[in-house]
Simulated assay, not measured.
Amino acid sequence: MNFITFTEEKLRTFTHAVFIKMGCSEEHATLATDVLIKSDLRGIDSHGVARLSGYVRLWEKKRINATPNIRIVHETATTATIDGDAGLGLVVAPFAMKVAIEKAEKYGSGWVSVKNSNHFGIAGYHSLLAVEKDMIGISMTNASPLVAPTYANERLLGTNPMCYGFPAGKYPPVIVDMATAAAANGKLEIAQRANKAVPEGWIQDKDGNSSINPNELKSGGALLPLGSDKDHGSHKGYGLSATVDILSAVLSGANYGPWVPPFVAFLEPSANPVGEGLGHFFGAMRVDGFRPAQDFKDHLDNWIERFKSAKTIDPNKKVIIPGEPEHAFEQERKVSGIPIIDVVVNDLNELASKLGIEGL
């Protein structure tokens, strides 16, 4: 497994060109590019430019609308439901979070549910939009059914990530960004490219037995909920995933559970959908709706310092603050560049050749 390092600007230029070729407007191409590059900068390689080919294939299948009419279809002073018109989730999601932020600016909080969308990148990107406004940001999305609920031998839920973002003072924001499955599907894809086994407790085979084969999903297996199995608290991960699915889709009118359309283009969506596209959910809460923002940030700084000074089992290890590793990656990669695995580079160069644009 080899990596090739690219400058942020090189990857931005390439990614932007791909979205323009798909027919996106300059504004949408720039925004979609920013979401993907943010993922690579923050070290979440599974959700960055490695996803480009998947978006293009869905667009070719006419499952992604490059020129969507994103609009509010239901609204109160503090809530809204948005129809993404089958657009890129990378564009629909920031639109929705900005609506939540605008409502929070006026009324203290804003809550937005989304239907008829697609994969929206990393949840952290959208929560950070609120954090930058001294708000608490909440973002979540349902996803292709790859996860078996506790005791089930059937894929009914997605990895269904959720993110909570909190603004700090002198420290980077606390960003709790996680899948509600034992592992995100992107981590299986990384293991497949590297031809490596995955840890015990991530997946089960088609018969419900534990497996370490990263290709298990291709033969009828399933990812497991956060917690792995009942003895290790999988019912909690299942409950979190169900919460994401209900807020993102049952609330908005998107597809939920096994009806969520697959991210891969070679699998067709359900012939009998219960809603429209994928669903997301966003929240923005003004910190100063609860106490002065600076007071909160000073105390969150104190919280961070206390946790970082905790006694540890191994003296060579420190307690990690949620979002700290991603922030460190971002600072480093903005200077030293972004490493991309050679398999992904080859895939992107093939994509460039097909689209008639300059490769990496």
Rank of each mutant, 00 (worst) to 15 (best):
N2Y: 06
F3M: 04
I4P: 00
F6A: 02
E8Q: 10
E9Q: 12
L11K: 11
F14W: 11
F14L: 12
A17R: 11
K21C: 12
E26R: 07
E27H: 09
L31F: 01
V35D: 01
K38T: 13
L41G: 07
H47S: 03
H47G: 00
G48R: 02
A50L: 07
I64P: 07
A66H: 04
A66K: 05
T67Q: 12
P68C: 08
I72V: 15
V73R: 13
E75C: 10
T78G: 13
T78H: 13
G84N: 08
G87P: 11
L88K: 05
L88F: 11
G89A: 10
V91A: 10
P94I: 01
A96R: 01
K98S: 13
K103V: 09
A104T: 10
Y107N: 15
Y107W: 13
G108A: 12
S113Y: 01
K115R: 15
A123V: 07
A123E: 07
Y125A: 05
A130G: 01
A130S: 09
D134W: 04
I136S: 02
I136Y: 03
G137Y: 06
M140E: 07
M140F: 13
T141L: 01
A143K: 05
L146G: 11
E154W: 11
G158E: 07
T159S: 11
N160H: 09
P161Q: 08
P161T: 06
P161H: 06
Y164L: 15
A168Y: 00
G169E: 03
P172R: 03
P173S: 03
M178S: 01
A179N: 06
A179P: 06
A181C: 10
A181T: 11
A181R: 04
A182L: 05
I190D: 02
A191N: 10
Q192G: 08
Q192M: 15
R193F: 07
A194Q: 14
A197H: 14
V198I: 15
K206C: 10
S211G: 09
P214V: 13
L217Q: 12
K218L: 10
S219A: 14
G221T: 11
P225D: 10
G227W: 04
D231I: 01
H235C: 05
K236V: 06
L240M: 12
A242C: 13
A249P: 11
G257W: 14
E268W: 11
G275Y: 11
G279T: 09
F282A: 08
G283Q: 01
D288L: 09
D288Q: 08
F290I: 13
F290Q: 07
R291N: 01
A293I: 07
D295G: 04
D295Y: 12
K297D: 03
D298C: 06
H299M: 11
N302D: 13
N302A: 06
R306G: 06
S309P: 03
A310V: 00
P315M: 00
K318L: 05
V319L: 03
G323L: 00
S336H: 09
V344T: 13
V344L: 04
S353L: 15
K354W: 03
K354C: 09
L355Y: 11
L360A: 07
